[in-house]
Design a protein around this nucleic acid. Structure first.
Lengths: 248, 248
DNA sequence: TATTTATGCGTAATTCATACGCATTAAAAA
DNA sequence: TTTTTAATGCGTATGAATTACGCATAAATA
């Protein structure tokens, strides 16, 4: 029951997560399809009464993708009175009622909810996305094929990607990569996030002079050509660089 | 009465403002001294039930300094369970009770409050800061002489100034200046915000090539030397630059 | 007239971003 | 073994942006 669930949580604030994932070639966003209706939204959740805000975001992320140690950052609070972007409030309420099979008018909470937006970066291949009790499917979607979402979630994604593009110049984004990766992969990652291409040789020169990249003895074999080297992040140097705010 | 005031507001979220002001030579922060106790905090307030978050921040700013058209931006939500940084929760409660002369244990609200942090930029000489009902004095303080504040407000200021220093590279900060100003003043502003010095000639070359600066016929007379020229911002070009995210 | 700052221009050194050439290496396929 | 296909690791040129600093001149008041 939705009422009992809400009892242990803050009622005026929630958390929504724009979870960016990289699959080796493009950056995608994780969306959830609600039960019984053909509408999607960002994964989100409530903050427990005795839970720190950032801890709540981390828990919600973990519930959805089973991962904790990822880059997760606040980027905006969405606090308009009416946060239904595409459909009006009544229409949205009806959709939610149809989806969860409950009469929302019976629920004593009758006010708008602010939502703290977080964005997360992770490697798609490391996770298995799991729907929550209101949703029946999780899907990674390309940035350019996101449908009309419930609430103000299109706006959230838009602001999250713009924030990421700005921030990426000052922070390494290793959390989107697998533990071991090739230089071509990290280049594709940057190209996908920033939506432009780089000259391979210049990119290699710049990235390899960063000391948080460690060249492994291993190679990725399998294709009909010279095998590319594998690299990994030096965790402590990576964090130092994050701290110092290095750029790329 | 605090109870009736709170009735029309959201109870789990509040707004706190780090208001930066420039007086022609250094950047300062506006602090409020609570009644009956020797403790200071940032100006803040509640969000009304039917008021957008950003509108609430704007209203709170206006109540405190009488100005509306200033740069005002969210920078973080503070959501720890215990937001009393220096003194523990009990001690802080006692201080507040002593200050407002009410028994907080009688108030039905018994949970922590999240706070959305905003920072604002304005010209000190344009405003007259007014205390609210809980505070008896507003004072502009230098960044390096801020005392231990109530709640987590030292942390808020710290994060706000770091955010401002990062953002200032992408946004003109004209709201800190008077309507008419000299090149030396805008240089002092940048130096104060970024806490470093610039070569005057290079600074002048860069700033004057920005087309949102308009040189006036007027000069600032009075001192025993050549009078410096006055400048103003071209409002529409200034906003364009803000929009485009120009840097300096 | 002396002193003090404001103004505006020039120039060199340096760093950084970007474009692109080329020789070599190594994996699998033919 | 040879061929094909990428991967790797240089080098180099160009232009833009940053930074440091010299210097001539203007215009206020003391």
């Amino acid at each position: 029951m939705i009422v009992t669930y809400l009892e242990n949580c803050l009622k005026e604030v929630s958390v929504d997560c724009v979870i960016f994932g990289f699959d080796g070639s493009t950056v995608k966003v994780l969306l959830s399809k609600w039960k019984n209706i053909d509408y999607w939204s960002l994964p989100g959740g409530r903050i427990k009464k005795m839970e720190a805000l950032n801890a709540a975001a981390q828990r919600i992320l973990q519930e959805r993708v089973g991962l904790k140690e990822v880059f997760l950052q606040q980027f905006n609070v969405f606090g308009e009175i009416n946060r239904c972007e595409h459909y009006d409030e009544l229409e949205t309420t009806k959709l939610i009622e149809k989806s969860i099979g409950e009469d929302l008018s019976k629920i004593p909470i009758k006010h708008r909810v602010l939502s703290v937006g977080y964005y997360a970066l992770l490697d798609i291949n490391k996770v298995k996305a799991i729907p929550d009790e209101y949703t029946e499917e999780c899907r990674w979607m390309e940035l350019n094929e996101i449908p009309l979402l419930l609430f103000d979630h299109n706006e959230m994604i838009d602001l999250a990607i713009r924030t990421l593009r700005r921030e990426v110049k000052y922070q390494p984004i290793g959390n989107l990569l697998p533990d071991k990766f090739t230089l071509a992969e990290i280049q594709k990652l940057y190209e996908s996030v920033l939506d432009k291409t780089f000259d391979r040789r210049n990119f290699y020169k710049q990235i390899t002079k960063q000391d948080f990249l460690v060249k492994l003895a291993e190679k990725r074999t399998g294709s009909a050509n010279k095998s590319p080297n594998l690299y990994r992040f030096d965790q402590s140097k990576y964090e130092q660089a994050l701290e110092a705010g290095m750029g790329f």
